[in-house]
Simulated scan of single mutants.
Amino acid sequence: MNRSLSLVVAILFIAVGTLYGQEAPSPKAKGALVLTYLKRPVLPTTEDNPMQQSADEVYLLFIVGNQAAAILQGDAVVRDSVLYPGGSDACMIDLATGNYTRRDESTILGGPYLITGNRKYKWDLTDETKVIGGIECSRVRPTDREKPVLWIADDLPVTAGPIGLTGLPGAVVSMRWGDHTYSLIKVTSDPGIRDIAFAKEGKPCTEEEYEKIVDDVLGPLLENGGSMEVGGGTIRIVR
């Protein structure tokens, strides 16, 4: 392990060791962490597919006490040391139970929605290892599940990951979920966040109920060639 990585690991062990201890008297929560990821679309951008013209984005995972919040960098609002996650990619996670609440603000689907679910898997380490960005990583997959498969750093003791994953044996360094990949590019300890205030505005539903809403709204569109007329233009629906 190189010297710079050893320093990061030492800082993380000190920080995470305070996560479940007594609350710090300082207004700044000791042990709070921010993991910064590069969120990148799997498919390349094409001029023929306007819905596919998505660029790389910075995706943040805040860990404060027993809570975590995953959010795009542009929607991370901090006021008075409190994080206010916003936007359709915001996700609030309970690290103890694996329960999460995420937002979807899609107006086409009748949003905003507050969607609840659980992604606390049991994870199995595989025999596959490789070095990613100078960090030694192991490949893991959920027990009794085929997906997702991701690479974690055994030496970075972070149990949460992007999109509400919990119960992990280490920090996610690289993963693919759906149409995007997530690559860890930075770890920040003690960022000055003492609490997370997740927005409660939206129609509550479970993941199963949300999937039915998607099928009910987008199903007819997909049967109609995957397009619809909006404001005189055509919006392509990609599933």
Rank of each mutant, 00 (worst) to 15 (best):
Y84F: 15
C91G: 03
Q73D: 14
V77W: 12
N99I: 07
N99D: 15
M51N: 09
P112G: 08
D104I: 08
T101N: 07
I108V: 12
N66L: 08
D56T: 09
A55Y: 10
A68H: 02
I93L: 14
A55M: 11
A90H: 01
V78T: 09
G110E: 13
V77P: 04
V77D: 14
D89K: 00
L95S: 02
D89R: 00
G65W: 12
S54T: 13
M92N: 09
D56P: 01
V58I: 15
A68T: 02
L83H: 04
A69C: 15
C91W: 00
S81D: 14
S88G: 13
Q52V: 05
M92Y: 15
I63H: 06
V64C: 12
P85K: 01
I93F: 03
G110A: 13
L95W: 03
T107P: 04
Q53Y: 02
R79K: 14
A68E: 06
V78I: 15
V64I: 10
Y113V: 00
S54P: 01
Y84R: 09
G86R: 14
D56L: 07
Y113F: 15
N118H: 07
V58G: 03
I71G: 03
Y100F: 14
G86Q: 13
C91I: 13
T107S: 13
D94H: 14
I63R: 09
M92P: 01
N49P: 01
E105M: 10
A55I: 07
I63T: 11
P112S: 09
T116G: 03
D80I: 09
Q52N: 09
Q53G: 04
D80L: 11
I71W: 03
D104N: 15
D94F: 04
M92F: 15
N49G: 00
A96R: 12
P85S: 06
N49W: 05
I108Q: 08
F62R: 04
I93Y: 00
S88V: 04
V58S: 11
Y100E: 00
M51H: 08
P50G: 02
Q53S: 05
E47P: 03
E105Q: 13
G117R: 00
R103A: 14
G111A: 06
P50E: 02
D80C: 12
G86D: 06
V64M: 03
P50Q: 02
I71Y: 03
D104H: 12
I63D: 07
G86Y: 05
G86H: 05
Q73T: 01
V78Y: 08
N118R: 06
D48Y: 09
Y113H: 09
V82Y: 08
T107I: 15
V82I: 15
L60R: 10
G111K: 01
Y113D: 01
